[in-house]
Design a protein around this nucleic acid. Structure first.
Lengths: 291, 291
DNA sequence: CGGATTGTGAAATATTTGTTTCGGGCGAAA
DNA sequence: TTTCGCCCGAAACAAATATTTCACAATCCG
């Protein structure tokens, strides 16, 4: 690309990434973010964009094998020239070196489509109502998923457990669900994940819960699980994927957005809980001490 | 990206070309010649390239309606950015009725950014290699995740279990991991999920596995878990989210893409496995009888 | 052939940019 | 805890860049 077989700046960054320091990585990310334009302005502007000092930029440039920022910038320009004069305007924007037909690109495309179509159909007011319900400490929160979606249920559970009390994850074995139903009281919440190959047992569970006047929040695909009729709130996500399987990416995104919103909503109480948790982590030395 | 319907520099040059003087036309031609790269360097270099003096450049910039060369250059850069950046990046209000600041939209934006930035940095050839490894029935497949990422490990496990034999999910309790390590043989695969708040135990597990010559495939965030040094293959995903939590959406997408690719790769064998599974489902009446 | 007009670049100036120095600060190890 | 070592940015410094000034050419026109 650039003359004389030299590596493009982006590649150099990637290779050296492991050896970079925190601020340098931060810088590297911004540079790669809208590569290469971000690196074509003045060093000061780049520094501000990356929230890093100008010396950091110079230091990184040297680590990458340039004499300084100016030389790096010159390289960027010649790369750009080579790329632009190349008649094949790169359209492979996802995984750059992969053909359009590569699985990664096809999945990325599909995920994008799913995201677009799903989100445009979610009613934000319903989302907000669900957030309110889930933030209400008086309501116990029960979470359950199906064969595949059990992971998502688990994901929601793990996060909610940090933020509030009275959260329970129903086991993956339908046989034990009645035990959990015993614990459900009027006004409790049941977050239920069911995408196609809808499962009989989940439907029955929903019915049982409904008789106990539990509020049912359903996460399902676009076609809608049979639980829909029982559910008080439904999130429909597109799950189309270039695969024999469905894609749960959008569901996960919705779940994460819910978690974040609940977190915001209950920050006052959550904060202390999380601090206590931090202490516990410290004591058990579970995590590495940084970042 | 250029503000409100302003003309690109190239167009301005063409329109004003008639009114330009000799030296200015000479300059204009050079600038259009390999547009816009030639205009992105310093004014001195451009002057030399066009065989014109620097004041001429400034004068022309003013004739074109800019305050000076610097302003012109800024325009060039933003044009370039607009031209290069992925059209998909353009945020077309996600959930239509939701304000931009609604959590759903913010999450969708973040997920998009993460997706783009992550995928552009994945080396498809590494992806393919991992697919091959995971498709090899002679290698046992062990899957493990951390506190949060355990769900993802579970997700990968559930799918792989359908497609091949000898898949095991390490329990969430680090205490029992040594038991699983006993089962690991040379050439086995260990899929390990570790995002920040990197966990000590996972690092130790990786070390143990490594001494047994297990091939380690790591799914981590962009900063890179300490396991990176042990790992044979690493997928770095962006996990930034407008939340106290990180977003695992991209990791999930990568996992799904892997699953799909493995499925393709092993379709011949998988097919029969899945048919058997279908029969089993039928017999247990787990699912409703239709899609 | 002058004299007015316009175009041009050398040089001076002002401004911005890039680089280096240096010490505070923070995490890791003892 | 203290020490050590490294990271990082404020600020001083150096270098380049951009802009303005100004005088000289070139061109045009009477």
């Amino acid at each position: 690309m650039t003359a004389g077989g030299e590596l493009p700046v982006s590649e150099r960054i990637r290779r050296k990434f492991a050896e970079l320091t925190r601020a340098e990585r931060q810088l590297a990310s911004t540079m790669l973010a809208n590569y290469p334009v971000s690196g074509l302005g003045s060093i000061t502007v780049l520094a501000q964009a990356a929230k890093v000092s100008t010396p950091t930029i110079v230091r990184m440039a040297k680590k990458l094998g340039f004499s300084g920022f100016q030389e790096l910038q010159t390289h960027l320009r010649s790369e750009l020239e080579a790329a632009i004069s190349n008649p094949i305007a790169k359209h492979d924007r996802w995984a750059e070196d992969a053909p359009d037909t590569h699985m990664l690109n096809r999945f990325a495309d599909a995920a994008m489509d799913n995201l677009r179509q799903s989100l445009s159909q979610i009613d934000p007011s319903i989302f907000d109502k669900v957030v309110n319900l889930m933030s209400d400490p008086k309501r116990r929160l029960h979470v359950v998923g199906g064969r595949i979606t059990h992971s998502l249920a688990d994901y929601l559970f793990t996060h909610m457990q940090v933020m509030r009390t009275d959260v329970s994850l129903l086991s993956a074995h339908a046989g034990t669900w009645p035990h959990f139903v015993l614990e459900m009281r009027e006004g409790d919440l049941l977050c239920l994940f069911d995408i196609r190959r809808y499962e009989h047992d989940l439907e029955r569970l929903a019915q049982m819960a409904k008789t106990r006047k539990v509020v049912i929040i359903l996460f399902t695909d676009f076609w809608g699980s049979p639980v829909s009729s029982q559910a008080d709130y439904v999130f429909n996500a597109r799950i189309e994927a270039p695969s024999a399987w469905d894609s749960n990416v959008v569901l996960m995104l919705i779940v994460e957005a819910l978690i974040a919103a609940v977190q915001n909503r209950t920050w006052a109480e959550t904060q202390t809980r999380m601090q206590v948790l931090e202490k516990l982590f410290d004591e058990t030395r579970l995590f590495r001490k940084f970042t």
